[in-house]
Every structure is written in C-alpha cells, then in structure tokens.
C-alpha cells in the first residue's frame, strides 16, 4: 500500500474496482486502469457513478477526463479536489 496522503478514504473505491469491475483482480493504487483490457467504457461509466454515490458529489461531464480517473490514486486526488470546492 502506498502512502498517498489523500484526504478521502480509497478503500470502498478500491474494493469496488477490484471486486466488481475487475472480477477479483488486485490492482495497485497507481496502476493504469484505463489502458485497454482493464476497464472498458461501460466500466468507466460505472466507476464514475460509484464515485458520485460513494463520495456524495456530482461529476460533471467535463471532469470525466483521463487525468481524473486513470488510476485509483488519480480518482482519489480528484475526489479530494472536489471536497475542497464544497
């Protein structure tokens, strides 16, 4: 486990990605999730709605970009940045 110094709790997101989206495959927080073969576009949409529900925020379309969701860590950073807006 890397020390990410994130404010949000990544564990529900990690569990969802590993157990639901990747059928039990383990991923590191910095692994590239979007490279082909890992998450398809359907899974990306599921990931975004999971983030919305779990962290109680609305993700506008313009935020659904590679740099915000390319890894668990990037997603956590994005959630943190949104927390700062609130």
């Amino acid at each position: 486990m890397t020390d990410l110094q994130l404010k949000c709790d990544l564990s529900p997101l990690r569990a969802y990605v590993q157990d639901t989206l990747l059928a039990g495959r383990t991923v590191a927080d910095t692994d590239e999730l979007l490279l082909s073969g890992m998450l398809d576009s359907l899974a990306v949409m599921s990931l975004v709605s999971f983030v919305e529900q779990t962290y109680a925020l609305k993700v506008p379309f313009e935020d659904v970009v590679i740099e915000n969701f390319e890894s668990l860590e990037a997603t956590g950073r994005y959630v943190d940045s949104r927390g700062a807006d609130a």
């Binding site: 979007l34 379309f61 935020d63 740099e67």
Partner: peptide, 13 residues
C-alpha cells in the same frame, strides 16, 4: 489512444 476513446471529454480535447 484507447484511453481517449473511453473518455469523451478527453477525446474532444
């Protein structure tokens, strides 16, 4: 890239 095809907002960028 495959990544861009999954992220419409990145693709339009």
């Amino acid at each position: 890239s495959e990544m861009h095809t999954k992220m419409p907002a990145s693709l339009s960028q």
